[in-house]
Computed example of a mutant assay.
Amino acid sequence: MALVELGRYDRNLANILVARLEADGVPALAFDGGASIADGSWLLIPVRVMVDEDDLDIAQAIVAGA
């Protein structure tokens, strides 16, 4: 299993997309969600949504249709 980046989104959208992907049977993870939360800049840092490279095509289709 090799993870690839599906895209970079704001924190809230990234978590919504992870939930949507998982609801459709595509395992996904949000990386960097807690980055720089201590200094208050967490809204400025995009969160990476990661999926298995074998699921990338279907994940892209799900996100495009969302």
Rank of each mutant, 00 (worst) to 15 (best):
M1L: 12
M1T: 12
A2W: 07
A2G: 10
L3C: 01
L3G: 06
V4S: 07
V4R: 15
E5G: 04
R8C: 15
R8A: 11
Y9M: 05
Y9I: 03
Y9R: 04
D10I: 00
R11H: 07
R11T: 11
N12F: 10
N12M: 14
L13Y: 13
L13P: 03
A14T: 03
A14N: 05
A14D: 04
N15C: 05
N15F: 11
N15W: 06
I16P: 02
I16L: 08
I16Y: 14
I16H: 10
L17P: 02
V18S: 00
A19L: 14
R20Y: 02
R20M: 08
R20S: 07
L21K: 05
L21Y: 05
L21I: 08
L21E: 04
D24T: 01
D24W: 01
G25N: 02
V26F: 01
V26T: 10
V26N: 01
P27Q: 09
P27N: 10
P27D: 13
A28L: 05
A28E: 03
L29F: 10
L29V: 13
L29G: 01
L29W: 11
A30T: 08
A30R: 02
F31Q: 12
D32R: 11
D32H: 10
G33Q: 12
G34N: 15
S36R: 10
S36A: 13
S36D: 09
S36E: 14
I37T: 15
A38Y: 13
A38P: 04
A38V: 14
A38D: 09
D39F: 08
G40C: 11
G40E: 06
S41K: 12
S41E: 06
W42Q: 10
W42E: 11
L43F: 15
L43Q: 13
L44R: 14
L44N: 13
I45A: 03
P46H: 07
P46D: 05
V47N: 04
R48N: 06
R48W: 04
V49W: 01
M50H: 03
V51I: 08
D52A: 07
D52I: 00
E53G: 03
D54I: 10
D55I: 00
D55F: 01
L56R: 00
D57G: 04
A59T: 01
A59S: 11
A61K: 12
A61Y: 13
A61V: 09
A61S: 15
I62P: 03
I62E: 04
I62H: 04
I62V: 09
V63G: 04
V63M: 07
V63L: 09
A64T: 07
A64W: 02
A64G: 09
A64P: 02
A64C: 02
G65E: 13
G65W: 00
G65H: 09
G65V: 00
A66G: 00
A66T: 04
A66F: 12
